[in-house]
Write a protein that binds this DNA or RNA. Sequence first.
DNA 1: ATCTATTCCTGGCTGC
DNA 2: TGCAGCCAGGAATAGA
Length: 257
Amino acid sequence: MPELPEAETIARSLRPLVEGRLIANAEYPGRRVLRGVMPELAGQRIARIGRHGKRIVLELGHGAVLVSLGMTGALLLNAEPGPHTRAVFTLDAGVLLFDDARQFGNLRWIESLEAEDGLGPDPLEMTAQQFTERLRARRTRVKPLLLDQGFLRGVGNIYADEALHRAEIDPRIVASRLTKTRAGRLHAGLVEVLEEAIAHRGSSVSDYVDAQGERGGFQALHRVYRREGQPCPACGAAIRRIVMAQRGTHFCPRCQR
DNA sequence: ATCTATTCCTGGCTGC
DNA sequence: TGCAGCCAGGAATAGA
């Protein structure tokens, strides 16, 4: 499931071959992938590839296409279209596909990112103090809060669990009850795990691959995510799994109190 | 403000 | 070997 590090990896792997290319043709088999009205893209140039939270941004001469990868979305460069291909962008050199088996992903045209928003700040672009203030203002449990894209953009289930473990914080604790010190540790844990994951080109838990079809390597370094019953790398206690907000939540009952 | 449940979807897994 | 049933969950939505 692509989150911030996976989206960043995809953006980086797309840039050298897609930035500056002209879109010769755009097709959307089934059309279900589109959210809202998609203008004619043929003839437009992809000026820049960006990332906004866990989404990929294809910046055009005017406006941009926001790619939400959902659970199983992938942007593939020069691959063969398959049964799950939802969009085909034929470029002046090469072809860019959007494949998405489960169809939780979508494409949306926006005028500008600034006008767009409604999303919280990027965890890698905020100070510990900003994070701490936002966090302690909320009377909701910290794990679901980290998943709330309006609170913070880019964090999903994997990195929420991994950051809470690094910060030694129980996912069930109410955010406003965290001390400034512990909130600061959570910020540090988030930044650390996201940067490490980017360095390892993301986590391939089920089917995530980058634009060249390559898997990430960070899944081997997960400390709690989907490791129920296995020993905590820090203390050896068995990792627990509970469900919060309909999401599997993994934590060490000894380290995280 | 914050909560939970539901919906979308299908590959991959379990168990018979 | 085949198949039914269940599970994973990002985000939108409804309702409490």
